[in-house]
Design a protein around this nucleic acid. Structure first.
Length: 268
DNA sequence: GTACGGCCCTGTTAGC
DNA sequence: TGCTAACAGGGCCGTA
């Protein structure tokens, strides 16, 4: 379940090895989620950027490869040719210099797109994505205004990517716990919005510093796990005592996602 | 425009 | 031991 810290970790590892590399061949799984990969033969990657949970990889011919890792997507390099016997290989790019970039994804929730530079109209979540967590324009006031655009539950809004980009289920639960905000509240004041923004920045920075959170599937480009799962304060701890007050944390399903919160610290 | 439910996927785990 | 059902969940789409 790669969220901003996991995707940023991948981006940092990918960039020095991918920028300047030419694609001499490509292939993919037949699903339309992955076939865009094949449109890149002959071009050269010029950068590796990130926007929310999306990797954006511009090419020399003014296009961009957009990668969403979904739940179990992994990017990795392989010496020589791609491993076509891997049943989970969904796309691959043969690079100059006898090396391949592979996209493997067990559950096929990931997806690839190739677009003209900056044209995200066909990728709704990316097109409508809110500011990055560290965007200087994302002031507490602005964040509060963005949250006020909808009356849905605050956690639902975070997962929508609209008030802020890059937050998924794990870091949403963590930040809401840290800010003592109930996931189901539909309106928060400017002071609590500021606290939530600070909490989001805190948990996301910690996630990046720890190389991401590996619960089961996530691996970075080198195949290594992250270590942030050892720092989690709320996510996945339902039934266990709150680190602040000792009250057993409660779990429920919100928007088909497990949600964990402290019924005492995070009262509605 | 907004809210909501269902679907895509498959390995792992729980329950019988 | 072996089978079945439930579960995990980000993004998208159809419907109300």
């Amino acid at each position: 379940m790669p969220e901003l810290p996991e995707v940023e970790t991948v981006r940092r590892q990918l960039a020095p090895r991918l920028v300047g590399r030419r694609v001499v061949g490509a292939g993919s799984h037949p699903s339309s989620k992955f076939t865009p990969a094949t449109r890149l033969t002959g071009t050269t990657f010029t950068a590796v950027r990130r926007r929310g949970k999306y990797l954006i990889i511009p090419t020399m011919d003014d296009r961009e490869l957009i990668v969403h890792l979904g739940m179990t997507g992994k990017l990795r390099f392989r010496d020589g040719s791609p491993d076509l016997d891997d049943p989970y290989l969904r796309a691959w790019w043969q690079l100059d210099g006898e090396e391949a970039l592979e996209f493997a994804d067990v559950r096929r929730f990931g997806r690839l797109r190739v677009v003209a530079n900056g044209d995200y109209r066909d990728i709704p979540t990316l097109f409508h994505a809110g500011p990055e967590p560290w965007d200087p324009e994302l002031t507490p006031k602005r964040f509060h205004e963005l949250l006020a655009l909808s009356r849905r539950a605050v956690k639902t809004q975070l997962l929508s990517q609209r008030p802020i980009a890059g937050v998924g289920n794990i870091y949403a639960d963590e930040a809401l716990w840290l800010a003592r905000i109930n996931p189901k509240v539909t309106r928060i004041g400017i002071e609590r919005a500021e606290l939530l923004l600070e909490s989001l920045q805190t948990v996301l920075i910690q996630g990046v510093d720890n190389g991401g959170t590996t619960l089961r599937d996530y691996r970075d480009v080198d195949g290594d796990v992250g270590s942030n799962q050892h720092q989690l304060l709320a996510y996945g701890r339902a039934g266990r005592p709150c680190f602040r007050c000792g009250t057993p944390l409660r779990g429920f399903v919100l928007d088909a996602r497990t949600t964990t919160y402290c019924p005492r610290c995070q009262r509605r």
